[in-house]
Amino acid sequence: MLEIKNLHAKVGDTEILKGLDLTIEAGKVHAIMGPNGAGKSTLSYVLSGRDGYEVTEGSVLYKGKNLLEMEPEVRAGEGVFLAFQYPVEIPGVSTMNFLKAAVNSVRKYRGESEFDAMDFLKFVREQTKILNIDDDMLKRAVNVGFSGGEKKRAEVLQMAVLSPAFAVLDETDSGLDVDALRIVGEGVTALRSPERSMLVITHYQRLLDYIVPDVVHVLADGKIVDTGDKNLAIELEKNGYANYVEAAA
């Protein structure tokens, strides 16, 4: 599904990713954990194509195609989704309208017919039911006045309606209390499927109680420095990142 080789990237003059290698197979959930400043968010932005993140070396193949030369909206069309750490507010645009614009853009890209308003409403309501989201959220402007938990649930809803093949979840647990964490975690788990890969980026192990990963990586100083199964995450929670940071430095 995804094959990252020797990825180097910089922001401004600072090199953040320094030779990252990572392969994710279809249907697998990988977690990346690491200390602040390790390059976790940079990796998510490089994969989604944000301006200002310059790749200086290495390659990223997604379904055998060169991901790095695609515009962000093309990547979305190809099935790449990023759940933002800080979802962005769009005043005056209802969540419903936004979802419809997004889904129809992606469907158009995939050569599928666009939803009309009624069909779309039905389609979204099915998803909100599964994710236990109040339909009232659909009427509110995108992320405006949303609580931390609501924002993250809205991200999961977007993921559900866009049905990506590869989803990056960037610190989806940040700003969530325990209850919200459980709801979001269960929502994401419900979206696991043999055709869908996920990369869960997190600082803490607790999210992984709900989204149990197949593989756990440790990212420090721009490189993957350790890989293991879900037990690695538990170990990290106990011992912290100090050893890795020292070793990487």
């Binding site: 962000p72 990547r75 614009a101 997004a102 853009s105």
Partner: peptide, 24 residues
């Protein structure tokens, strides 16, 4: 950040501008 958010969801830049301005 608003433009990138829209584009990440598959919405082209021009459509994103129209969407954001209509919201405004």
């Amino acid at each position: 950040d608003q433009l990138f958010y829209c584009r990440q969801r598959g919405i082209s830049e021009e459509e994103a501008v129209a969407l954001i301005v209509n919201g405004f």
